[in-house]
């Protein structure tokens, strides 16, 4: 399709799948697709179950801050930061099914955007505007802070370890 060589090792923007990465583009070609889809489904089942367990363990009373979903989303964002550094940025882990299983499946299934948006909408509907604004913004700030801190820490650990081995 494209002329010329693809750029050497581009780190994708989208951790689920990025079609500009040839290996990811080829994931659904041929019979291998069933393996990829199966591990994504298995991971999604695991992640969604874990989120469901958290919501049962810490149920949020109506009109209050949804702590369980907050904790789930922030934790999942920290873990994707670790995972993507190991898999995509530093290639510490190279098995082709690790990203589909853990990233797309487990962490994608564990974290949720729809429940977050629905809970904010419901809090607004109940006139709990302060709680709604606090929840909406705290999730965004904590989740983005978590993915950033986790990625930075994991890069430092991996790079430090490699320098240690080299030196």
């Amino acid at each position: 399709m494209s002329t010329g060589e693809p750029p050497p090792r581009r780190v994708p923007i989208d951790p689920d799948v990025d079609l500009s990465v040839p290996a990811q583009r080829a994931e659904t070609a041929g019979a291998a697709r069933w393996g990829v889809l199966a591990v994504i489904a298995a991971g999604g089942a695991l992640g969604a179950s874990a989120r469901y367990a958290a919501s049962l363990a810490w149920p949020a009373a109506e009109g209050t801050f949804p702590w369980a979903v907050f904790a789930v989303n922030v934790t999942g964002c920290a873990l994707i930061g670790v995972l993507m550094v190991l898999v995509a940025e530093r290639s510490v882990v190279t098995h082709p099914l690790v990203r589909p299983f853990l990233g797309v499946g487990v962490l994608g299934g564990f974290t949720t955007f729809s429940t977050y948006a629905a809970d904010v909408t419901e809090l607004l509907e109940r006139q709990r505007v302060l709680v709604a604004v606090a929840y909406a913004s705290a999730t965004a700030v904590a989740a983005l802070g978590a993915v950033w801190a986790a990625a930075v820490a994991t890069r430092a650990l991996v790079d430090g370890d490699r320098r240690g081995r080299a030196g």
């Binding site: 951790p15 989303n73 999942g76 994608g108 299934g109 974290t111 955007f113 729809s114 989740a143």
Partner: peptide, 8 residues
Amino acid sequence: GALTTYST
């Protein structure tokens, strides 16, 4: 819940 994602 699984269709949508916060981590990605």
